[in-house]
């Protein structure tokens, strides 16, 4: 069956190619750091299940030390000039959008249909569909737009070099969340939050829950990690048990208050830090700054909404 294992092999091979291309790039002053970094990334995808927990720990430690102390360089690869791109854009016109939209469309169709096909493992079908979308789009770019496959990998390397350390951050933060959970960080924060609330007022309980969700989400980078802790610490005992609030209203708006926290934090790296790198912004917090006013206004609105609706 085609499942996540096949996706990891595919990803490992792609990163291995990126490592090899980095090794051959004499224009990058840190080419060996890049080679080692992407090589270890490839190793993780190809052999992570055989390295053991401690082996994987050493692998990620090595990647962190390479990217954090030596630093990753930006490669020099041959690419098209702005003029060539303009000419090509006028030649291919809207054909350019076809491969671009192939990835989301194949991912979408695959997510709904592949699970009915025995060839595919229904678990994590989205990532399988995404990988198939990538392959189809690469072939379409070859056929429709005459883009050589090796050039695609060179361009992919250019974008990964642009991301640099940010490429590893989302996975690092996911792992940090797991270690925090193991260390009892959630219980410690939930306990503190529960102690900090005066039992008296309904509004205080609602505000503590919505703001607590946002703040804890900002710390963990993930509303899913904050939700069980804050709901067990504040939501269930106060808003529901003590004041008789409605569970559906409380949890729906509570989760969305957590999402306000996601907009505020560098811990949600794939939403907030990676785009800043992808879009070439000089301030790594520029996306967060663009979101902060919306996040605070919506958090206030959620608090009022919950107070108005939860005790109907």
């Amino acid at each position: 069956m085609i499942g996540i294992g096949a996706v990891y092999v595919f990803a490992g091979l792609v990163f291995a190619v990126i490592a090899l291309l980095s090794a051959g790039d004499s224009g990058n002053p840190k080419r060996w750091a890049n080679t080692a970094f992407w090589g270890l990334f490839a190793l993780s995808f190809l052999a992570g299940d055989y390295l053991g927990d401690f082996g994987n720990g050493l692998l990620v430690l090595a990647m962190v030390l390479i990217a954090g102390t030596v630093g990753l360089g930006i490669g020099k690869n041959q690419t098209t000039t702005v003029q060539q791109r303009g000419t090509s854009a006028r030649l291919y016109r809207n054909k350019l959008f076809i491969p671009a939209l192939t990835i989301p469309v194949v991912t979408l169709i695959g997510s709904f249909t592949f699970k009915h096909i025995a060839l595919f493992n229904p678990a994590q079908i989205t990532l399988v569909s995404l990988s198939i979308g990538v392959i189809v789009a690469l072939l379409l770019a070859r056929v429709l737009l005459k883009q050589p496959i090796p050039a695609a990998f060179q361009e992919g390397r250019k974008l990964l070099d642009l991301l640099g350390w940010a490429s590893l951050l989302p996975q690092m933060l996911a792992a940090l969340g797991a270690v925090f959970a193991l260390a009892g960080v959630g219980q410690a924060i939930g306990g503190l939050a529960a102690q900090a609330i005066p039992g008296g007022s309904r509004f205080a309980a609602v505000a503590a829950y919505t703001i607590g969700m946002a703040a804890f989400t900002a710390i963990m980078g993930n509303a899913f990690a904050a939700f069980p802790v804050m709901t067990a610490g504040i939501g269930l005992p106060l808003i529901i048990a003590k004041f008789g609030g409605d569970a559906a209203v409380m949890t729906a708006i509570g989760m969305l208050s957590g999402f306000c926290g996601t907009l505020m934090t560098p811990m949600a790296a794939n939403f907030n830090i990676v785009p800043a790198a992808l879009l070439g912004l000089h301030d790594r917090y520029a996306v967060i700054k663009a979101q902060l006013p919306t996040a605070f206004l919506l958090l206030a609105a959620n608090t009022v909404l919950m107070y108005a609706l939860v005790f109907r």
Binding site: F10, A11, S44, I103, K146, A151, Q154, E155, G156, L159
Partner: peptide, 19 residues
Amino acid sequence: RYVSVTWLVLPVIGALERA
């Protein structure tokens, strides 16, 4: 590791930007 699988789209995006 599945978190980093999304980078697989970058070669495609790069190739299309090249075009």
